[in-house]
Amino acid sequence: MKARLLTVFMTSSLLLTGCSVVNFLTPHKLDIPQGNEITANQVELLRVGMTRAQVRFVLGTPLLTDPFHKDRWDYIFRDSRAGVVRESHDFKVFFNDNSLVRWEGSYFPAPKTNQVEKTKPLPPESNLMSMPINPGDPNSKDVEVKPLLKEGS
């Protein structure tokens, strides 16, 4: 009797501890940012009165078009790492019929200018060595055009 009771107790305790092991065996979650990345440069291009097609060209296709709010598009961005949301932006665009009325929400700031671009050398000024030569142009003063055949030969 004690052996059966001990076997039942050991089996049930092993099964119950197996349930707690499941928390350690979770699948790996990929760190993939999802949604629309709306930047400050894109928001600067928005103008009141733009059509839906123009807004779609500037911002892209909205992540959510709610059937209950047909005059509102939602651009949502979520960046989660290991199941924890690190960054979240919600941007909403409102229409009246087919024209843009207003927009609101958070978006990515304008990207900082790269220091390399600031120190990039300017292109050289007009230089005869880099100018294309057109020998067929009779108005060219820099290139002497010689005929292939002499006259009278």
Rank of each mutant, 00 (worst) to 15 (best):
N23F: 11
D79I: 05
L63A: 11
P123D: 03
D137V: 07
K118D: 01
K141V: 11
Q115N: 09
E104Y: 02
P135W: 08
Q42L: 06
F24I: 12
L100H: 00
M10A: 15
K2N: 05
E144M: 12
P121N: 01
R56W: 07
D74A: 09
G49E: 08
Q115G: 05
K29A: 09
F95A: 03
L16C: 05
L16I: 07
F95T: 07
N134T: 13
N98A: 14
Y75P: 00
S80N: 09
P111F: 14
P124W: 01
L59Y: 02
S12P: 00
S88Q: 14
G83I: 10
N41Q: 06
F57Q: 11
V84F: 13
G152D: 04
L100V: 07
I38R: 06
R56K: 11
K29F: 07
V101G: 00
K92D: 03
Q54D: 04
F108N: 05
F108V: 01
L122T: 10
L59P: 02
D97M: 12
V22C: 02
M131G: 08
L149A: 14
T17D: 03
F9G: 10
V93A: 04
M131H: 14
S130N: 13
L148C: 02
L25Q: 06
E144L: 11
G152R: 04
A82E: 06
D71E: 14
R102H: 11
I76E: 05
C19A: 08
P27C: 00
S126Q: 10
T65V: 14
F24Y: 12
A82D: 06
S153D: 09
V85E: 15
D71Q: 03
P109Q: 14
A110D: 07
M129D: 15
L148K: 09
N114T: 08
P109A: 14
L122V: 08
N23H: 08
R81T: 11
K118L: 05
V55G: 03
S126D: 05
G105R: 04
R78I: 08
L149Y: 00
Q54K: 02
H89V: 02
P111D: 04
P109W: 13
K92P: 00
T51E: 00
E125W: 10
L148D: 12
P62M: 05
N98W: 08
N36E: 06
T51W: 00
F9D: 04
T65R: 07
P124L: 01
T26W: 07
P147N: 12
L128M: 12
L45C: 06
L30E: 15
K92E: 02
A40P: 03
F77E: 02
N114C: 11
F77R: 04
T65L: 13
S13P: 00
R72K: 12
L122D: 09
R56I: 07
A110Y: 02
E144H: 05
D71M: 01
R81P: 01
D79L: 03
R4I: 09
F108H: 12
